[in-house]
Amino acid sequence: MLYSDKVMDHFTNPRNVGKMDDADGVGEVGNAKCGDIMRIFIKVEDDIITDVKFNTFGCASAIATSSMATEMIKGKSIKEALELSNKAVVEALDGLPTNKIHCSVLAEEAVRAAVKDYYDRNGIEYGDELKSCPGHCESCESCAGH
Protein backbone atom coordinates (compact mmCIF):
# COMPACT_ATOMS: atom_id res chain seq x y z
CA MET A 1 0.00 0.00 0.00
CA LEU A 2 1.24 3.43 -0.95
CA TYR A 3 -0.03 5.06 2.24
CA SER A 4 0.03 4.15 5.93
CA ASP A 5 -3.21 3.24 7.71
CA LYS A 6 -3.05 6.60 9.50
CA VAL A 7 -2.88 8.50 6.20
CA MET A 8 -5.81 6.50 4.83
CA ASP A 9 -7.74 7.11 8.05
CA HIS A 10 -7.23 10.89 7.86
CA PHE A 11 -7.95 10.85 4.13
CA THR A 12 -11.21 8.90 4.35
CA ASN A 13 -12.28 10.38 7.68
CA PRO A 14 -10.72 13.84 7.79
CA ARG A 15 -10.87 15.74 11.08
CA ASN A 16 -11.90 19.40 11.19
CA VAL A 17 -12.94 19.52 7.57
CA GLY A 18 -15.15 22.46 6.69
CA LYS A 19 -15.28 26.23 6.58
CA MET A 20 -15.54 28.92 9.22
CA ASP A 21 -17.45 32.13 8.59
CA ASP A 22 -16.18 33.93 11.69
CA ALA A 23 -12.55 32.85 11.54
CA ASP A 24 -9.94 35.04 13.23
CA GLY A 25 -7.33 33.98 10.68
CA VAL A 26 -7.34 32.25 7.31
CA GLY A 27 -4.28 30.90 5.55
CA GLU A 28 -4.21 29.61 2.00
CA VAL A 29 -1.17 28.07 0.37
CA GLY A 30 -0.43 26.09 -2.75
CA ASN A 31 -1.41 26.45 -6.34
CA ALA A 32 -4.11 24.77 -8.39
CA LYS A 33 -1.66 24.40 -11.26
CA CYS A 34 0.47 22.18 -9.03
CA GLY A 35 -2.53 20.24 -7.86
CA ASP A 36 -2.54 21.26 -4.19
CA ILE A 37 -4.31 24.07 -2.36
CA MET A 38 -4.84 24.11 1.38
CA ARG A 39 -6.88 26.62 3.30
CA ILE A 40 -6.87 26.64 7.10
CA PHE A 41 -9.25 28.68 9.27
CA ILE A 42 -8.44 29.38 12.93
CA LYS A 43 -10.48 30.75 15.82
CA VAL A 44 -8.30 32.34 18.51
CA GLU A 45 -9.15 33.20 22.11
CA ASP A 46 -6.51 34.39 24.60
CA ASP A 47 -3.75 33.25 22.30
CA ILE A 48 -5.21 29.74 22.15
CA ILE A 49 -6.46 28.20 18.91
CA THR A 50 -9.90 27.16 20.10
CA ASP A 51 -11.17 25.91 16.76
CA VAL A 52 -9.73 25.07 13.40
CA LYS A 53 -11.15 23.99 10.05
CA PHE A 54 -9.65 23.18 6.67
CA ASN A 55 -10.50 22.91 2.98
CA THR A 56 -8.14 21.16 0.63
CA PHE A 57 -7.88 20.57 -3.10
CA GLY A 58 -5.29 17.89 -3.58
CA CYS A 59 -4.27 14.29 -3.34
CA ALA A 60 -4.91 11.92 -0.47
CA SER A 61 -1.76 12.95 1.35
CA ALA A 62 -2.65 16.63 1.00
CA ILE A 63 -6.02 15.94 2.61
CA ALA A 64 -4.50 13.72 5.30
CA THR A 65 -1.74 16.19 6.21
CA SER A 66 -4.29 19.03 6.43
CA SER A 67 -6.42 16.92 8.71
CA MET A 68 -3.51 15.89 10.91
CA ALA A 69 -2.09 19.42 11.10
CA THR A 70 -5.43 20.85 12.21
CA GLU A 71 -5.72 18.16 14.86
CA MET A 72 -2.22 18.91 16.10
CA ILE A 73 -2.83 22.64 16.58
CA LYS A 74 -6.36 22.56 17.94
CA GLY A 75 -6.40 23.70 21.59
CA LYS A 76 -2.75 24.74 21.38
CA SER A 77 -1.25 28.19 21.82
CA ILE A 78 -0.27 30.24 18.80
CA LYS A 79 3.36 29.77 19.76
CA GLU A 80 2.95 26.01 19.77
CA ALA A 81 1.14 26.12 16.43
CA LEU A 82 4.02 28.05 14.89
CA GLU A 83 6.39 25.37 16.12
CA LEU A 84 4.52 22.68 14.23
CA SER A 85 6.93 21.24 11.71
CA ASN A 86 6.19 19.25 8.61
CA LYS A 87 8.33 16.48 10.09
CA ALA A 88 6.05 16.24 13.09
CA VAL A 89 3.03 15.95 10.79
CA VAL A 90 4.75 13.23 8.75
CA GLU A 91 5.67 11.32 11.91
CA ALA A 92 2.16 11.60 13.29
CA LEU A 93 0.90 10.05 10.04
CA ASP A 94 3.38 7.17 10.31
CA GLY A 95 5.27 8.49 7.31
CA LEU A 96 4.56 9.66 3.78
CA PRO A 97 6.05 8.52 0.47
CA THR A 98 9.06 10.67 -0.45
CA ASN A 99 7.32 12.37 -3.34
CA LYS A 100 4.49 13.43 -0.98
CA ILE A 101 6.61 15.17 1.63
CA HIS A 102 5.80 18.52 0.02
CA CYS A 103 2.18 18.01 1.15
CA SER A 104 3.33 18.12 4.77
CA VAL A 105 5.33 21.27 4.02
CA LEU A 106 2.18 22.78 2.60
CA ALA A 107 0.29 21.92 5.80
CA GLU A 108 2.96 23.59 7.95
CA GLU A 109 2.84 26.65 5.71
CA ALA A 110 -0.95 26.81 5.79
CA VAL A 111 -0.88 26.95 9.61
CA ARG A 112 1.71 29.72 9.53
CA ALA A 113 -0.27 31.62 6.91
CA ALA A 114 -3.39 31.44 9.08
CA VAL A 115 -1.46 32.79 12.09
CA LYS A 116 0.05 35.55 9.99
CA ASP A 117 -3.44 36.54 8.85
CA TYR A 118 -4.60 36.58 12.47
CA TYR A 119 -1.65 38.81 13.41
CA ASP A 120 -2.33 41.13 10.45
CA ARG A 121 -5.99 41.49 11.36
CA ASN A 122 -5.12 42.34 14.95
CA GLY A 123 -2.16 44.60 14.30
CA ILE A 124 0.21 42.24 16.10
CA GLU A 125 3.87 42.60 15.19
CA TYR A 126 5.78 39.58 13.99
CA GLY A 127 9.21 38.70 12.73
CA ASP A 128 10.50 38.22 9.20
CA GLU A 129 10.09 34.47 9.41
CA LEU A 130 6.33 34.86 8.93
CA LYS A 131 6.55 37.56 6.28
CA SER A 132 7.33 35.41 3.32
CA CYS A 133 6.97 31.88 2.18
CA PRO A 134 9.77 29.93 3.87
CA GLY A 135 10.67 28.61 0.46
CA HIS A 136 10.23 24.93 1.07
CA CYS A 137 8.16 24.65 -2.02
CA GLU A 138 10.85 24.06 -4.60
CA SER A 139 8.71 21.15 -5.68
CA CYS A 140 6.15 23.67 -6.85
CA GLU A 141 6.88 25.15 -10.26
CA SER A 142 5.09 28.42 -9.66
CA CYS A 143 7.07 29.02 -6.46
CA ALA A 144 10.42 28.22 -8.02
CA GLY A 145 11.14 31.94 -8.06
CA HIS A 146 11.52 32.10 -4.28
Partner: peptide, 14 residues
Protein backbone atom coordinates in the same frame (compact mmCIF):
# COMPACT_ATOMS: atom_id res chain seq x y z
CA UNK B 1 -17.37 20.19 -1.11
CA UNK B 2 -13.97 20.28 0.63
CA UNK B 3 -12.12 21.97 -2.24
CA UNK B 4 -11.17 25.65 -1.97
CA UNK B 5 -10.73 25.69 -5.76
CA UNK B 6 -14.32 24.58 -6.31
CA UNK B 7 -15.54 27.23 -3.90
CA UNK B 8 -13.75 29.92 -5.89
CA UNK B 9 -15.15 28.57 -9.14
CA UNK B 10 -18.65 28.60 -7.70
CA UNK B 11 -18.30 32.10 -6.29
CA UNK B 12 -17.03 33.36 -9.62
CA UNK B 13 -13.60 34.22 -8.18
CA UNK B 14 -12.10 31.84 -10.73
Amino acid sequence: GISPVWEKLEKGEL
